[in-house]
């Protein structure tokens, strides 16, 4: 699957799909959408990136292990429910604040942070599965080619280098 066409299109497609997944996540409060479907879209975006540039490129772009992302999402969702203990309302009650950001009233709620948690859980677990499945067909792609993989990781260069340094310790 490592064709020139795919490798050219994949970064743009991934970026677009990630953006769209956030849109679907936020839209989900009142209209069709939400954390689950948003997380699926984001996971498929990363899967496309993985097909084009290999599993290693996705792992470097993500910076955190997918299961850790899923854990963070689960933790965020739990906290969103638990927050209501401070306000004298039952578990999982939606709590709202309306801060003014740049002169615009932005309604924020534990509902959204819960949905964001769902988004991260779905993203983390599906990416984790997808990467594990892709890992097997991964062996024939030489590491040099993976290192060429452009866009997404041009941004977090710092993270990439740190990741490299940590490599020997992780394999221990």
């Amino acid at each position: 699957m490592n064709t020139l066409i795919l490798r050219t299109v994949a970064p743009a497609l991934t970026a677009l799909m990630l953006l769209f997944s956030v849109f679907v996540l936020l839209r989900g409060h009142n209209e069709p959408g939400g954390g689950f479907i948003g997380g699926l879209i984001a996971a498929s975006a990363l899967a496309i990136y993985g097909i084009a540039f290999g599993v290693g490129a996705v792992r470097r772009a993500l910076r955190f292990h997918p299961m850790a992302i899923a854990g963070a999402g689960l933790f965020l969702a739990t906290l969103s429910g638990l927050l209501s203990i401070l306000f004298g309302v039952p578990f999982m009650t939606g709590l709202w604040v309306y801060p003014r950001i740049l002169g615009l009233e932005v309604p924020l709620a534990t509902v959204i942070s819960f949905d964001l948690g769902v988004y991260l859980v779905v993203l983390g677990s599906i990416v984790s599965i997808a990467l594990a499945l892709e890992q097997d067909s991964e062996t024939e792609i030489p590491d040099a080619e993976v290192a060429q993989a452009p866009p997404l990781e041009q941004v977090p260069l710092r993270g990439k280098r740190r990741r490299r340094d940590r490599q020997p310790r992780e394999t221990r």
Partner: peptide
């Protein structure tokens, strides 16, 4: 659930 999530985050 919270502890499980926390342990997933510090999985290393």
């Amino acid at each position: 659930i919270g502890t499980g999530a926390l342990l997933m985050m510090v999985r290393k």
